[in-house]
């Protein structure tokens, strides 16, 4: 199977600062790939290039064989900071994902909005403004908006970083379930090893800046596709987490 997202000799520098060293990497469709690495190593830059928000200095990024040149709704971003628009209700925030789509009718847009309100447990808060709901709910709104837009690829930049431990755990479980149900390709950036192992089908481990791939771990082969919360307490999970931690310490020389 050919890769859906393809980094082809992709490199990025900001002025004299080399952020990403020439990287070639292919990501399968409908998989959840975690970019793991020390803070500031360049993994967010790689993800932004997939989103078309930054352009590679050399090389290119291909999505379904097509070169990424600008942002479009096929690749939606979810940020760490709460990016729900404060002036729109939860319902309208989700509908905003489809605001510029002319290929579906208003009735379809309303139906999709209802679907994602239900899917993310937000129906009771449809008329609330983001400042009236919790941080976890705001991130659900952001994810729902991206899915409603019809994005094939979700680009998630430490989206649960600002949440408390319990909310974070619950959203991780939900994200995993939704990724399987909605058949999405997700690139998830984090520096949290436990989160990475729990969520990922595959972990791509990056070195310190300039980012280069130092390890590529097939998590799905070891943990399978379903990730109930209890998996965190299994021997397999512990071993894998320790292995990744060991890799980070030895391959990147970093404490994450």
């Amino acid at each position: 199977m050919s890769a859906y997202v393809q980094f082809a000799d992709t490199a990025k520098s900001f002025g004299p600062i080399e952020v990403v060293r020439k990287t070639s990497l292919g990501l399968d469709r409908n998989s959840l790939v975690v970019f793991l690495g020390p803070s500031g190593c360049g993994k967010t830059t790689l993800m932004r290039m997939v989103g078309g928000l930054d352009q590679p200095s050399t090389g290119s990024i291909l999505l379904g064989g097509e070169k990424v040149v600008r942002p479009d709704r096929r690749r939606g971003m979810v940020f760490q900071s709460y990016s729900s628009f404060p002036w729109l209700t939860v319902e309208r925030n989700i509908a905003f994902g489809m605001r510029y789509r002319n290929d579906i009718t208003a009735a379809e847009k309303a139906e999709r909005t209802r679907h994602y309100l239900e899917l993310f447990g937000l129906a009771d808060f449809a008329g609330s403004f983001p400042n009236r709901i919790s941080g976890g709910m705001r991130q659900r709104v952001a994810i729902a908006r991206t899915l409603a837009a019809g994005s094939d690829v979700l680009l998630m930049d430490e989206p649960f970083g600002a949440l408390d431990a319990l909310t974070r755990e619950r959203l991780q479980v939900e994200l995993r379930q939704i990724q399987i149900r909605e058949e999405k390709t997700i690139i998830f950036v984090t520096h949290d090893v436990e989160e990475a192992v729990f969520l990922a089908d595959r972990i791509v481990l990056f070195s310190r800046r300039p980012a280069t791939v130092v390890a590529d771990i097939d998590v799905a082969a070891e943990l399978g596709p379903q990730r109930p919360l209890e998996i965190r307490e299994t021997q397999k999970f512990f071993e894998l987490r320790n292995r990744v931690l060991h890799l980070i310490r030895h391959e990147t020389g970093a404490v994450v």
């Binding site: 989103g51 942002p71 900071s81 990016s83 628009f85 605001r99 510029y100 908006r145 837009a149």
Partner: peptide, 28 residues
Amino acid sequence: PQEFVEVARTVGANSRQVMTDVALRSMG
């Protein structure tokens, strides 16, 4: 916030739409 602008761009807003639907609303 830059995130607001980038969210709008990734759901298909052009420059004018980013200005009217996001920037002006945000700075209102």
